[in-house]
């Protein structure tokens, strides 16, 4: 198992994933909806770090 997300005080019955695949929402018997950032895009942050627009990296 990769992870267990806890917080709901009743059984979790409903689940949906955002269209970008990063966020999931769970609905439970405790009458709340909880949003979890379960699948953050790791590649994105790495790409940002390596950006060619980062001029600081181009100065030698």
């Amino acid at each position: 198992m990769v992870a267990s997300l806890t917080g709901h005080t009743h059984r979790v019955l409903y689940l949906a994933m955002s269209p970008d695949g990063e966020t999931i929402v769970t609905g439970a018997g405790d009458e709340t909806l909880r949003f979890w950032n379960a699948f953050p895009k790791r590649e994105n942050t790495e790409l940002k770090r390596e950006s060619r627009l980062d001029y600081g990296r181009l100065i030698r």
Partner: peptide, 10 residues
Amino acid sequence: VCKTPYRVLD
């Protein structure tokens, strides 16, 4: 995996 929800709605 972030273990806390970033938003809770009633």
